[in-house]
Design a protein around this nucleic acid. Structure first.
Lengths: 332, 332
DNA sequence: TGATTCTTTGCAACCGGTTGCAAAATTGCC
DNA sequence: GGCAATTTTGCAACCGGTTGCAAAGAATCA
């Protein structure tokens, strides 16, 4: 079955080294032998074995793509962009689903077992210790959608969640809402904490506006719906900044089920701008996270770190912006 | 960085063979040496190199997971289940995104370059020739969500799309709709053709019911919305069987935008039952595709074919059923 | 043409493991 | 304890490639 280097060498009447060199960028081969080899390889249907060569070169061109966000529709876009982006650079994503794992130790071992060149942790909910565990194991890593820190221990690419929270707060203020609220994801998620911080910060400058905070149990439709239903039974705010788009849609669902309208009775602003948010049926006003840029930068960074492992860890943050749709009342 | 077999052997004071054997299931090692080796391995933090061993064993435990459905929310569930299912069996998914590819030749070469043990083509829109190209290259393969054929050339796991079409037709008939329609995905997709066939077949027994057929340009929200808008400008049917859930949601959006109500004015039944279909905001009556079973069977089949490459190709179809929600009027 | 330099080539060792084989060690049995 | 049967062990070859090195060949120049 498998055609090997040796087969090609024999057929072409050259040494295996010659064959190896024709398939190696920038190696020294004459045009004549190259032609002979290529002809033989074509005839035999030879394709080099990346894993065997990785043994000597130390590069597998495998990148571990680690995530636990297999329930957030945004991540379908994320996986699409990551796989395409990696493919375009001749790299292969080795997918790791961490949904049922809490400990990085297994995935680290796996990364080593498969000698990945680098790893990308794509998650807004995993703690920074995850990416750090990879780094400690000597695996070049970047944490995408991770939390910004002033003295990063690992590469981080994402958004400034505090700034986004502030942006959301200002959006509500500028629309004249007098009673606003933050409806976050799980309180322990760092992204939630940061968004709350920014939101409350913006409101601090407006003591005349009433603010409240609550947390859903997960970044999910159901959790958003449940939490908003709870709010409606008490004394709801006029407008909510929801921790993310899925949560927002859950909240909107609760509002409509209660016979209220959005934005006429209650306004909602989300975060992410996943494709679904633009669906006319949903038409969610939200803050766009520049997913493509984040992913492009993540790949760039992991490649750079693979090429220079001593590279200093870096943080790259991308600006977000409000996307005006139909779930907040218009500015006065 | 990398701790090798030799390092462990040296430290444990045994041969490399002994170390290799302690890490090989069912090999002959005494308890004493095993203990020595394990102690040394632990102290050194050794983890075996799967790629090096694949050279001699011929197994990488890598499974190519090939898809082009990176825009259908159902596939987030699909990827979640596939990655978890493969992981549970000690296999690793190597993700291949075919979105911008039409020719299998590149992905086949890639599979060989990485010596995958097998491949799973997860797509309802890729033609059967794709999976066949893998099989021709000697790669054990199963086509998940593929089309049923009586004399399969490759393993196929999925649903009986004709039966689903019939089921949808019967659901509409039983609710007393007198003018019904099929709003399919792209006409060239085999799944669309089969669903149309089944749907029309069911209606054949009811000549008193008026039937029409149209096709959206893609399995997407926008395509569904555009096509339904077109329908509404002419003379719409009372109820539509949409080719899939995303298409259905697009259609519902168009209906609401036109100031009509679903199901009071127009009924919709979808296909897939992706998680979102159950969201109260959408509450789509649809036909459930048993995704978890399909994926479990796909993994079983690919593993079985890896273990016995001469295994006869097999088709496994799973029954679907109607999930009653709120987008069809109730049965009389 | 011959000396010198640069390019191309093959040899052989190596990457990190596995495995058939024969020798060594252990066990069982009388 | 002695012998045969069984288990454990290490040697060495091999998996499919890469690469440093020295020799061979080609090109350059006087």
């Amino acid at each position: 079955m498998g055609v090997t280097l040796k087969d090609v060498a024999e057929r072409a009447g050259v040494s295996t080294s010659a064959v190896s060199r024709t398939f190696t960028e920038g190696a020294s081969v004459s045009t004549k032998t190259r032609a002979k080899v290529e002809k033989a390889a074509l005839a035999l249907g030879y394709s080099p074995n990346a894993l065997a060569s990785s043994l000597t070169t130390g590069r597998t061109k495998l990148i571990g793509l680690v995530s636990n966000n297999f329930h957030n529709p945004l991540f379908l876009e994320v996986f699409d962009l990551f796989t395409r982006g990696l493919q375009d650079r001749g790299l292969r994503p080795l997918l790791v689903n961490l949904t049922s794992e809490i400990d990085p130790v297994n995935s680290v071992r796996m990364m080593r077992t498969y000698s990945v060149d680098g790893a990308i942790v794509a998650s807004s909910t995993l703690p920074p210790t995850f990416a750090e565990a990879y780094r400690d194991a000597g695996i070049p890593v970047v944490h995408s959608f991770g939390r910004y820190t002033t003295a990063p221990q690992v590469n981080i690419v994402g958004i400034d969640n505090v700034a986004c929270g502030r942006m959301a707060g200002e959006a509500l203020i500028s629309r004249g809402y007098k009673r606003v609220a933050f409806l976050g994801g799980p309180e322990r998620a760092t992204s939630t904490q940061d968004r709350a911080l920014g939101f409350l910060g913006a409101l601090l400058e407006h003591p005349e506006i009433e603010v409240s905070v609550s947390y859903a149990s997960a970044y999910s439709f159901d959790a958003g719906r449940v939490e908003m239903t709870k709010q409606l039974m008490q004394d709801p705010a006029e407008a909510y900044f929801c921790g993310d788009d899925v949560l927002s849609i859950g909240a909107i669902s609760a509002i409509k089920e209660a016979g209220l309208r959005c934005p006429e009775d209650i306004g909602i602003i989300g975060l992410n701008d996943m494709q679904m948010a633009a669906w006319q049926l949903i038409n969610l006003t939200t803050i766009r996270q520049p997913v493509a840029e984040i992913i492009g930068a993540s790949i760039d960074l992991v490649v750079a770190t693979v090429e220079n492992p001593k590279r200093h860890p870096e943080t790259r943050l991308f600006p977000c912006r409000v996307i005006e749709r139909g779930t907040l009342r218009p500015k006065p």
